[in-house]
Design a protein around this nucleic acid. Structure first.
Length: 204
DNA sequence: GAGTTTGAAACT
DNA sequence: CAGTTTCAAACTC
């Protein structure tokens, strides 16, 4: 996820369409909101997930991020198109009790990925077709994949450095504006990507 | 951690 | 295909 998507002013169709009735599209139940997009051509009621309600929306995003810095993180890491990798596991894993992870209620099954060691499901049948589920044998995505995930942080660090290094190393208004812009909703990303970078340093 | 709310999926 | 039920995630307390 990037800053553009969370503060989106996208006016373009985006594939997903929600049908929220009660959440005003300001809770993570709403697929549009949870993916950082404005609602567009949706069938929702009383929608606040749009530019007209940006103030309310921003406050809501902030509250959610305060509670969980990773709330808007994609649930399943998306591998870049040019890399051929095993499907990455769900970040949090599922907790299915009744469906054996064989129906779309299961986030892993729905994403067409096998359940992994972090899932807390019962009687799971959503295992890798070739390899029986082995909770001790989860293989993390390859390094290149992590590198691609870390790119946004690297760019952001460059922006910070640029902002601070300009003219006499004092903060001009422009620099402050840049920092405010950069820092808004994605502080949590720093932590996330920084962790990945640290890991990369150790690995490659 | 338990109970409630929510919207998607499944069912009738 | 509309209405209802089931389900698991998100949320609240």
């Amino acid at each position: 996820m990037d800053n553009e998507s969370l503060s989106s002013n996208s006016q373009f169709p985006k594939g997903k369409v929600c049908n929220c009735k009660y959440s005003k599209c300001l809770k993570l139940y709403c697929e549009c909101f949870s993916s950082g997009e404005y609602c567009f051509d949706c069938n929702c009621n009383n929608c606040f997930n749009n530019s007209e309600h940006e103030e309310t929306r921003s406050l809501r995003i902030k509250a959610i991020l305060d509670r969980d810095p990773f709330a808007f993180r994609p649930k399943i890491p998306k591998a870049p198109d040019h890399l051929v990798v095993e499907p990455a596991a769900h970040f949090k894993g599922c907790n299915c009790k009744k469906t054996k992870c064989t129906k779309k209620y299961c986030e892993c099954f729905n994403a067409k990925i096998p359940c992994s060691s972090i899932c807390k499901c019962r009687n799971c049948k959503n295992t890798d077709i070739d390899k029986p589920k082995d909770k001790n044998n989860y293989t993390p995505p390859i390094n290149e994949y992590f590198k691609t995930l870390a790119e946004p942080l690297v760019k952001k660090i460059e922006k910070y450095e640029e902002a601070f290094s300009e003219e006499n190393s004092t903060l001009c208004e422009d620099s402050l504006a840049k920092i405010t812009e950069i820092g808004s909703y994605e502080k949590f990303e720093e932590y996330f990507y920084a962790k990945i970078l640290l890991m990369l340093n150790g690995l490659s």
